[in-house]
Amino acid sequence: MNNGLMMTTAEQFLFWIIGPIIVLGASALLFSKRAVLTACSVMVTMVGLAFLYVGLGSPFLGIVQVVVYTGAIMMLFVFVLMLVGVDVSDSFIETIRGQRWAGVLLGLGLLVVLSGAVFRSTFTFAIGTDAASNGNNAGAVAHLLFSDFAFTLEITGCLLIIAAMGAVILTHRVRLTRPITQGEMMEIRTKRGMRLTPPPAPGNYARHNAADVPAIDARGKIIEDSVPSALRMRGQVHNLRGLPQDLLEDKVPPTRRPDAAAPAIEAGTAGSSDSAGPRDTGGPPEPGDTAGPEVKP
């Protein structure tokens, strides 16, 4: 692909298109508050790098880059972010005095040193990997991998197994109490007067069927429990604009609403399945039920 010291025009084109994208994606690490956004940007960077790898004459690694980094590693990151809390945004208020300036200055210093080393070096004529790959990059890599680097490969395999076991052990949690069986759960629910059936799916009878839109029962009452508890805890329940207008405006005119009702619905903080009780499930909307279905006694 490239036999000369200089890049070909196509490669230059590729480099100058992809390079800035890569740097831009990477810089999200420094400037993005939201971790998910950062992860996505880094994914872009990884894919961009995969392009460059292909351009550098190793299509095999380019594919591996996509599969391993973008497909596995970055997905793992996103999973963990979800686990930890996707909305956990990083505060940019520095707690260690001078740390940010030190980081920036040292980063600049590192850049100067590294690029100084690059600029001060003279590079030989780029041979290109065509001859070495012999038209079959993956085959060439495989040949080397299973001959000269066979032992390294074995050891790396060991490492992977150990790492997997380590992850299992690290995340393993010893159960401290006996798990509650299904029968016991039903007993508890009966005794406490809780709902016995599973909650309806979110968005049932509502205008939208997204996961954050609560279901509405046959009498037009909102069933808060239908929204997954994780969303409720985070206050991400939809603001119920999917409800029929009359239901909202007639029954609960803004002027007559108690102060707590609207914010409760907006924020979605009100209501939990434990204390909701049968009141949520049935009963026509009473004329005097001015507080709306979400207001708790």
């Binding site: 740390q99 980081g103 210093g109 590192l110 040193v113 001060r120």
Partner: peptide, 25 residues
């Protein structure tokens, strides 16, 4: 703070790299 340690380490690395580079000038 692990970040401070990282900064210290980086400073050392930069210093060493600078020395190596200066030695090769």
């Amino acid at each position: 703070y692990a970040r401070s340690y990282a900064a210290t380490m980086l400073a050392g690395v930069i210093l060493l790299a600078a020395i190596v580079l200066a030695g090769r000038m």
